[in-house]
Design a protein around this nucleic acid. Structure first.
Lengths: 192, 192
DNA sequence: ACCTGAACACCGTTCAAGT
DNA sequence: ACCTGAACACCGTTCAAGT
């Protein structure tokens, strides 16, 4: 609407703007609508302007994923097993609040950013506090992460899916998630 | 190498040829190398020739995924819980034998073809035979499927990943998978 | 029914140049 | 450092036409 910028004129775009625009596109048009060119269109810049702020589309997606994980709170419970349960459930809820992103999480397997690291570290600490030795804790960590992201993916899809015979309610799926989580935690901590 | 075909000349391509070419590309160049145009190039036909055999790329991928599941054998054990364990482990192994496909499985969440149906039905039957009532069986089914595909995804990636600090051995991951599977089955069947 | 030629409406990314 | 213009090398899919 304003006069087009020539080369050298700055648009004042930040990485935050790009992430927000990407998130908006994802929510509005799904993961097929997420393209570098579409993001640029939203921000009113040339497509290649984005490359001044991110090296690639994949790097941008990684940033986006880790951004979401920032919302997962650190658990405060005394009991380590209880804290683990809360932590995984919080992660599940946070992922579902950004259902459009979950398929991307799956493809990348849980993101490698700083927030993913923080959560992973906390899991290991809690597992060791629950009496699991270091090596077994790494195994348990993998099991719990896979389970949580995988279940979030099912739940995220069921909110989109329309033709399903028996409509799955988010509440039921969350309960389903927690049931399986309890089984796993019981196994992890060796409680019979 | 031979003289180019004009319009109306048949290449004699079948859906099987297309699926094999797609699989070959996936193995050779990864999932980024899988394009309709690349498949057509391999088969020596025009890109749009593929649309005489499949309605879309997504439909082709779905077919590819279900194709892989055909290799999962039906378990023969007497004990239902044992049969379930075998079935999930066979699925895990089969998925890993086609590691290139696992990310696509995640994106589609386990395929919707006839082989996926067959396996899903068998799971439900075994779960009910193990004393799980119909509704709980559906829950358990979701838990087991998510867990199996999710873990296969981790293992499939670890064979590609090079920069990992502690190299994960396929054997260790398979053992890790089975450990978690036992926890889940113990929970599912209500055994203390 | 199965195939080609040509086209439509896109992609991600790079490179040189402007301020 | 941040941006544009132009280009490169691609995509999936459709449409009309040929046999």
């Amino acid at each position: 609407m304003t006069a087009p910028r020539g080369p050298g004129k700055r648009a004042g775009i930040t990485l935050r703007d790009i992430l927000d625009a990407a998130h908006g596109l994802l929510k509005a048009k799904g993961h097929e609508g997420l393209s570098m060119r579409a993001i640029a269109r939203v921000l009113g810049v040339a497509p290649n302007a984005l490359y001044s702020h991110t090296p690639s589309k994949q790097a941008l997606i990684d940033e986006l994923l880790d951004d979401v994980l920032a919302a997962v709170p650190s658990p405060t419970e005394e009991d380590a097993t209880q804290a683990l349960s809360t932590m995984m459930t919080s992660t599940y809820d946070t992922l579902l609040r950004h259902g459009e992103l979950v398929p991307l999480f799956l493809a990348r397997q849980g993101a490698r950013g700083r927030n993913a690291w923080r959560l992973g570290d906390q899991m290991l600490l809690l597992l060791e506090r629950a009496g699991v030795d270091a090596e077994a804790a790494r195994e348990a960590q993998r099991v719990l992460i896979v389970y949580t992201i995988g279940f979030a993916a099912i739940a995220a899809q069921s909110t989109v899916e329309v033709g399903a015979t028996a409509r799955l309610q988010p509440r039921d799926l969350r309960q389903n998630f927690m049931t399986g989580l309890e089984w796993l935690l019981r196994g992890v901590t060796g409680q019979q």
